[in-house]
């Protein structure tokens, strides 16, 4: 899966896992923050998104909260983290 496909997949997961209404993948800007400003997701969304991504990509998030805040910052950050984790596995 290339980066663009991965990002699209992540957006689809965000929308379906969080049951966001009226939003299409193209409405989500790759570099925009997911939490706070931008999409404005909340802490419950963060928990659920983490679970959905874990299920879909089989990745795990670190036990260090500051790292996770970084990974969840935007679609770009998530994609980078997931592909890094995936590559780490195949090596």
């Amino acid at each position: 899966m290339n980066m663009d496909e991965l990002k699209l997949e992540i957006k689809k997961i965000i929308i379906s896992a969080l049951e966001l209404e009226d939003i299409k993948p193209e409405n989500i800007v790759d570099s925009e923050p997911l939490f706070g400003a931008g999409l404005g997701l909340d802490s419950i969304d963060a928990l659920e998104l983490g679970i959905a991504l874990k299920k879909r990509f089989g990745i795990s998030f670190s036990a260090e909260s500051s790292d996770n805040r970084k990974h969840f910052a935007s679609v770009d950050a998530l994609a980078a983290y997931i592909s890094a984790q995936k590559n780490g596995e195949t090596k």
């Binding site: 209404e21 009226d22 802490s43």
Partner: peptide, 24 residues
């Protein structure tokens, strides 16, 4: 688009409330 109207009101309310209580 409806999405844009939603986003406008969500970010307006985000000025007063925590994200968890913003209408979804």
């Amino acid at each position: 688009e409806k999405f844009e109207i939603n986003q406008y009101f969500r970010s307006y309310l985000a000025g007063f409330f925590e994200a968890v209580v913003l209408p979804r």
